[in-house]
């Protein structure tokens, strides 16, 4: 694969998670990434964007930046950044089934699914500054 990237900026509304998924599916398909790998990346990205939509800005709306980079070593790097309240305790957020909003019926497994689907997950959060979720995955399967 040659170097390539895509950047998307959305308002933190839950209806905007679907267009982000559609965009990344389309972007990766033209790069000959196998459908199984596309599905994994799409799911991990959906979790990260959902997290920002649900938790970053409380009841207000703010912006979420999504960046997808491909390099010529077949690595894909995804960055999801919000500029909201930040995560108070990242290690707590990473514990399976932990949710800061139990009333919203979150399963609390978003980060666990992200961790399982990519090779590297980094959560960089600063209180009142926002959160950056970075995920790196090596593409092993290509379309025929």
């Amino acid at each position: 694969m040659e170097d390539n990237y895509m950047k998307i900026e959305i308002l933190s509304k839950d209806i905007n998670v679907l267009p982000v998924r559609i965009a990344i599916t389309s972007f990766l398909s033209q790069e000959n990434v196998h459908i199984d790998e596309v599905m994994d990346i799409k799911t991990a990205l959906s979790e990260a964007v959902t997290n920002a939509v649900e938790h970053a800005y409380n009841d207000e709306k703010g912006k979420i930046d999504v960046e997808i980079h491909l390099d010529n070593n077949d690595n894909i790097c995804i960055k999801v950044q919000d500029f909201g309240k930040g995560i108070e305790d990242v290690s707590l957020a990473l514990i399976p089934t932990y949710t800061s909003k139990p009333e919203s019926e979150h399963a609390g497994v978003g980060f666990n699914i992200m961790e399982s689907l990519v090779d590297e997950l980094v959560v960089d959060s600063k209180l009142n500054n926002g959160t950056i979720i970075t995920m790196i995955k090596k593409i092993n399967k290509k379309k025929n």
Binding site: T43, S46, E47, T50, S104, H106, A107, I113
Partner: peptide, 13 residues
Amino acid sequence: KFMDSSGIGLILG
């Protein structure tokens, strides 16, 4: 065709 952890929350609820 697609489900993420929101779907798991829906099932659990």
